[in-house]
Design a protein around this nucleic acid. Structure first.
Lengths: 180, 180
DNA sequence: TCGAACATGTAAAAGGTTACATGATTAC
DNA sequence: GTAATCATGTAACCTTTTACATGTTCGA
């Protein structure tokens, strides 16, 4: 599912600006999808040309003008189709696991650092997800938040429980041919 | 980290053809990175032009000719640098969680189907990871395999433990405005 | 006064997927 | 005989990122 389609979905929840949509990607969607301004604004523009969304300018007194987008009926149909049609999947790109996979090319210090970095990254994400209020959300959104919490917790726990062992095994395998 | 860089790493482990590299992506790397032939072959070609890998043709009696790639010294340096320099991160694109996020646009049957589909997808991935032998791997590779097992198990458990609740809440919120 | 937040957008480049094209061998 | 596996590659397209460009307001 591409960004254009995703934008339709977000606009089904409420009218929004490109900026708002970026916020949503950094907040509730953060643990399972990303998007940058450079893709969001062009996406909205195209969607409007296709008649799947409409926009109007809203002038705040103090703030810059906003272009507020709304979903059209055709847009909702399009999104619903895409949602039903897509087969559930998940793709992961993990720089962290690449680094672990090739741990033998890192020295002990670097390896320890990567592990710590990732643990604290997970902690930050968890803190955010756990701070979200349970109430204002639909059942589906709550599911995604709790799914995120469960999966990130599991990953952080794995790091905590296996770091010492990995580091010990790594030191054993350090032959002096690599690193300092 | 892009595909070209990743190929260098895989060639550090052993000489390989484009086909072999594709296999690795479908096997041990499957749970944290993907790549298609259409990106692998051009990547290897470019790496050879840059002097980071070399290749030789190997003629099997029965099988088609293979182009076996080897890592050069410069290639190893390049990869090691990239590995150390990159900051550990992880990005996820989950069609499944998008579907859950917008569960209110699905009917109960579709929702149940998506959940079941994802559960069985996780089961397949787990079966594969759990079938891998523990021994032949370096500490780092073992870490990534076990990390994958732990995180997929957590996600599958979450689905199993929360499916009934989600479905119940979903039925309650079904107002008749959407779906059948 | 200085940085963060609000707000929109473009252009070039990077990176990758999909589909196509080809063909032998092996296992069922 | 037919599907799967082995094996390599190209071309067109799609999508997204990065970097740039601009300007206001608010809080510390």
């Amino acid at each position: 599912m591409n960004l254009k389609t995703l934008c339709l979905g977000l606009l089904e929840m409420q009218d929004a600006t490109g900026y708002d949509i970026k916020q949503m990607f950094e907040q509730s969607l953060n643990h399972f999808h990303a998007a940058s301004y450079g893709s969001i604004y062009p996406a909205l523009k195209q969607l409007e040309q296709e008649g799947l969304v409409t926009s109007r300018i809203e002038s705040g007194d103090k703030h810059p003008d906003k272009r507020l987008f709304s979903l059209t009926g055709a847009g909702l149909d399009d999104f619903t189709d895409a949602l039903v049609e897509a087969e559930p999947a998940e793709s992961i790109k993990s720089e962290f696991l690449v680094q672990m996979f090739f741990a033998h090319l890192l020295n002990s210090h670097e390896l320890a650092q990567k592990l710590e970095h990732m643990e604290s990254l997970y902690t930050r994400k968890l803190d955010y997800l756990e701070s979200l209020p349970d109430d204002d959300f639909s059942a589906g959104v709550r599911f995604t938040v709790e799914f995120g919490i469960a999966s990130i917790r599991a990953k952080r726990s794995f790091i905590r429980n296996n770091r010492a062992r990995l580091l010990a095994e790594h030191r054993e395998q350090e032959t002096g041919t690599v690193g300092e």
